Simulated scan of single mutants.
Amino acid sequence: MEFTVGQLAGLLEGKAEGDDTQKVNRLDKIQEGKPGGISFLANEKYEPYLYETEATAVIVSEDFVAARPFKTTLIRVKDAYLGFTKLLEAYAQLSKSMLAGVEDPCFIHPTSSIGENHYRGAFSYIGKNSRLGNNVKIHPQAYIGDNVSIGNNCIIHSGARICADTVIGNNCEIFPGAVIGADGFGFAPQADGTYKAIPQIGNVILEDNVSIGSNTTVDCATMGSTIIRKGAKIDNQVQIAHNVIIGENTVIAAQAGISGSTEIGKNCVIAGKAGIVGHLKIADNTTIGANTGVSKSIKKSGETHLGYMSMDIKDFLKSYAYFKNLDQLEKRVKELEKKG
């Protein structure tokens, strides 16, 4: 893909300063910029690279004032970081939309259908009675089981597994190695000490604009549905158990685990390695810090919780002030006991 500097300035609603007829075909770091590349300058500590870079163009904020001469063409925008982010988004979207057609070998069952402008990579598999929308991209070695529904503009990356009966909305992205709809962890203890598997007959529903990271697992419900509401973003290596509900626009970072039948509210932030036990309710706008263990419901909206087991952040910080001074407190107690 190749564009002129002027075209990119128009896309970013900015103004080119220099030769806007030059062509750009690559995104570069400013310190590694070469001819044909475009970069950005948003952090002042990288400013020295502006005077050395060979990049064809550099995006800067409109109020930037150069300290000395430079060779590159500038694109001035309101916010350089946001401008470059917009460019990255456009580049990624164009790259994805260019994929089309069917590679061999791949398989789709005769009872299934897929919409217009789709892509199916080599060794991908689509089972019986599945319905896929328009502009769906199925990358090599992805698996889609029976009775699956996938909306428009979805991307299923290589090695992802979409198990039977899963429902996926529009504009969703499932990254490599994710497993959606495998059996939940359900076993009934027996009198002889063994465990008997409980059939998991429910499904998973991902609403619109959901992202599921690499090697994340979302288990199907025992009965009913495990539900990820619209706009939720799930990082890599997250475990979401059976019958969990994740609220709208909630984000969950890597290695967090949500146990069965817990309901997470909307606009929550769950940091890495947090663990939430089953059958709880977490209020809207809750933040749960890294490595935090949550063992009881959080009922008040907008709280931040830390610690193991978790407590409100104000209580945790007060307690921590005592934790780190325990050795001094012990010495004082012993001295008082001697005096007594």
Rank of each mutant, 00 (worst) to 15 (best):
V251K: 15
I227G: 03
I228N: 03
G224F: 00
N236R: 15
S225C: 09
I228V: 10
I245A: 10
T250L: 11
N243W: 14
N249W: 15
D235K: 12
A241L: 05
I228A: 03
Q239E: 07
A241C: 11
K230Q: 11
N236V: 14
N249L: 14
A232Y: 08
I228L: 07
R229C: 05
I252T: 08
T250E: 08
I228W: 02
G224P: 02
N236F: 13
A253W: 13
K233M: 11
A232Q: 06
A241R: 05
Q237M: 14
D235W: 11
I234D: 02
I252P: 03
K230E: 13
E248H: 15
N236S: 14
I245S: 12
S225Y: 06
M223P: 00
S225I: 05
G247S: 12
I227F: 04
G247A: 05
V244E: 03
V244F: 02
S225M: 06
T250Q: 00
I227D: 04
A232P: 06
I246P: 00
I245D: 13
N243K: 11
R229A: 03
S225R: 10
I245C: 10
Q237Y: 14
I240T: 00
N243H: 03
D235H: 11
H242E: 02
I234S: 02
G231F: 04
A241N: 07
N249K: 15
T250C: 12
I240K: 01
A241Q: 07
I227K: 03
I240S: 04
H242A: 04
N243G: 00
G231K: 11
V251P: 11
V244G: 02
I245F: 11
S225D: 05
N243T: 06
G224I: 00
R229N: 04
G231Y: 03
V251R: 15
Q239Y: 06
V244R: 02
K230T: 10
V251F: 12
V244H: 05
S225E: 09
M223T: 04
G247Q: 15
S225F: 05
I234Q: 01
Q239V: 08
G247T: 15
G231R: 09
D235V: 12
N249M: 13
V251S: 15
K233T: 09
Q239G: 07
N236D: 15
K230N: 11
A232T: 06
R229K: 12
I246T: 08
V244I: 12
